[in-house]
């Protein structure tokens, strides 16, 4: 099998590698779900995947189209009510990592999934916060994955739906019982981490073939790069094979449901 891969595959494989075996992960739908299940099917067979629909320790054979697909329930250790999910499991501190996507992100990892424009007369109304506001503050840490573009990486998010580190990078300071917040952002171009002091996102690793200019072009603020800038490891043949199988299975399943 050829080791050629797309930038989307690069993003998913890199995001998957962020999850360690045995972690408990509260999974968002879409890209996070794809990455988390790839992790489970490759290097992290004992990663515990939890979806906000109440499915605890689920092992879906195909990726869910919605957060409440029957597949998630059928392959789960158990399914609890939604209040139990948020109160006992998330707020109760049982989640190591929350894995989120977003529509907009800024330099302090604040996430906007509410709207573009002004709240009272929005240009574009987005679905809203869902589980993210509390996942981001109650989970031990947060991984974020999304495609890199000027539309998504903006200087100021139009609305803070979900806290990264606030508009000044200090919003978690002194708050009791709060998680560490975002610890890495994985895109189709690079991996970023918040600066330990200022909390501003810094590019720590470029994907192979991606230049600094590519990242600068796709970012809505003057993005910083780490002094020791690394190159992200390429996906290996097995990771690509498992990912492609998973996506093909998923496509077949969803196309067949009429």
């Amino acid at each position: 099998m050829s080791n050629e891969y797309t930038s989307s595959e690069m993003m998913t494989v890199t995001a998957a590698k962020a999850l360690e075996n045995g972690m408990t992960c509260f999974v968002g739908i879409g890209l996070p779900s794809e990455a988390a299940n790839l992790a489970r099917l490759t290097h992290a067979p004992d990663v515990v995947l939890i979806y906000e629909s109440g499915t605890l320790q689920t092992k879906p054979d195909v990726l869910p189209l919605s957060i409440g697909d029957g597949e998630l329930c059928e392959s789960a250790l158990t399914t609890v009510s939604v209040p139990e999910m948020f109160r006992y499991w998330l707020q109760g501190g049982k989640i190591d990592v929350g894995f989120l996507g977003t529509a907009q992100i800024d330099r302090y990892c604040n996430l906007n999934t509410t709207l573009i424009g002004d709240y009272q007369s929005p240009k574009v109304r987005l679905p809203g916060g869902g589980g993210a506001p509390e996942i981001a503050t109650c989970a031990g840490e947060v991984f974020i994955t999304l495609k890199h573009s000027k539309r998504t990486f903006v200087n100021d998010v139009d609305f803070i739906t979900t806290l990264g580190f606030g508009r000044d990078g200090k919003a978690r300071d002194g708050v009791p019982n709060i998680g560490r917040g975002p610890t890495r952002v994985i895109t189709d171009l690079c991996v970023m981490k918040p600066d330990p002091e200022t909390k501003e996102l810094v590019v720590v690793s470029l994907h192979p073939g991606v230049t600094r200019d590519d990242v600068i072009e796709a970012t809505g603020w003057e993005i910083r790069f780490a002094d020791q800038l690394e190159t992200t490891p390429t996906p290996d043949a097995r990771e690509l094979e498992v990912l492609r199988d998973l996506k093909a299975r998923t496509e077949r399943k969803h196309a067949g449901e009429a």
Partner: peptide, 25 residues
């Protein structure tokens, strides 16, 4: 909202949670 439904079922006027920290909602 999950807490608010639960509080409604429990006959309470409000729900309390560790929530909305830093959110503009």
């Amino acid at each position: 909202m999950a807490c608010a439904f639960e509080a409604g079922a429990a006959g309470l006027p409000l729900a309390v949670l560790r929530g909305y920290v830093g959110s503009e909602l």
